[in-house]
Structures are given as structure tokens and as C-alpha cells.
Computed example of a mutant assay.
Amino acid sequence: MKAITIKQPWATLIALGEKQFETRSWQTKHRGPIAIHAGKSTDKDACNDSWIKSTLAEHGIKSYKELPTGVVLATAELVDCYKVETTVGHVSVLSNVKVVEGLEVAFGDYTEGRYAWELTNVQVLAKPLEAKGQLSLWEWNGDSK
């Protein structure tokens, strides 16, 4: 299964169902199952952002220290990859006239020219599995390492 390494807190926001788009500077042609891997690093400044902090708190996460790292947290379906056309405030227009708004925009980098990967059917693993992440998309065999 393809996997993507995502820095915390964004990997957890996806696993919690609070973030449905992962934004990247590059596009992908991959569609289908994808493992969500929480990288080894955590953006502590982002964890102190009021929107992110309050959303994590709604799920009982009070500190960035509680975010798991170096593990696959969930799987999802990567259903499409859109180019960001414009963003004004908390509303982004993507290619194919797809509109993203509200916290979703606050939880990503919707700078014009970037890409938004739409994720659906997120399934949280019963127990996160240790895995060494990589850049770009990589193959995950589903085993703990």
C-alpha cells in the first residue's frame, strides 16, 4: 500500500476526521488506498495555533507531547488531487471548481499553485504501527518495524 509521511499535528487531524485534504507542493497520479504515517517531527508552533489546539482538545489531546510520531495511524482513500487556483481568507477554489472552506483551509497550505489531495474513508488503526517514513509516496507493507 502506498503511504505518505505527514508531520504532526496534521497526521492526527486526518486520523481524527478533522482534515479531509492534505496539501502538498507536488501532485500525484496515485488514487486508491493510502497509509497515513505520522513523521518523527512535530510542528510545536502549529500545535499552539488556536484552531488546531482547540480541535485537538475536543478529542482529548491537551499537548503536542501526546501526538504519536514514527507510526502509521490510519489508512484512507486518496480520491483526487486538485490544484489550488485561488484562496481568499478561509475559502479556497481548487481545479474542477471544487471549493474548500473554513477550518479545512486553516489546516492546510492553500497557496495558489499548490495541490490538495482529497482523502475519504479514513480508518484509524486499532494500534498505531511503528514505521520509518520517507519522502514522497512510499510502499508500506502493513507491518510494524
Rank of each mutant, 00 (worst) to 15 (best):
H90Q: 15
K65D: 15
E118A: 11
H30G: 10
S92L: 15
L13E: 01
K40E: 08
Y115V: 04
G108V: 01
L73M: 04
R114T: 07
T87G: 03
V93H: 08
R31Q: 09
T55N: 02
K44Y: 13
V97A: 11
A3I: 03
Y64F: 12
T12R: 13
A46M: 15
S63E: 09
N121V: 01
S144Y: 04
S25W: 02
P68W: 06
V72Y: 01
G133N: 10
G17C: 07
V88C: 08
T69A: 12
L137V: 14
T69I: 15
K132C: 05
I4E: 00
E22I: 00
E85Y: 07
E22Q: 06
V71Q: 15
S41V: 10
G113Q: 05
V124G: 00
I52P: 07
A74S: 09
T23N: 08
E85W: 07
H30A: 11
G17D: 10
D45S: 11
V84A: 04
D43M: 04
S95Q: 09
W140H: 14
K19R: 05
A38T: 15
F107Q: 15
P68T: 06
V88H: 15
W51Q: 09
Y110M: 03
A74I: 04
S25Q: 07
V91S: 14
Q8H: 03
A38P: 05
R114K: 15
A116C: 11
L135W: 04
G108T: 02
I34G: 00
I14T: 03
K40W: 07
T55P: 01
S41L: 11
A35P: 05
A116V: 10
L119E: 01
Q20N: 05
F107V: 15
H90G: 12
L16T: 11
N48F: 05
A116N: 12
Q8R: 02
E85G: 04
E18N: 06
V71C: 13
E139W: 08
G32N: 13
K19H: 00
C81K: 08
T55D: 01
N121G: 10
L73I: 00
T69C: 14
K127I: 04
A74E: 05
P33C: 00
D109T: 15
V99D: 03
H30C: 13
G113W: 03
Y110I: 01
V99E: 08
L137Q: 12
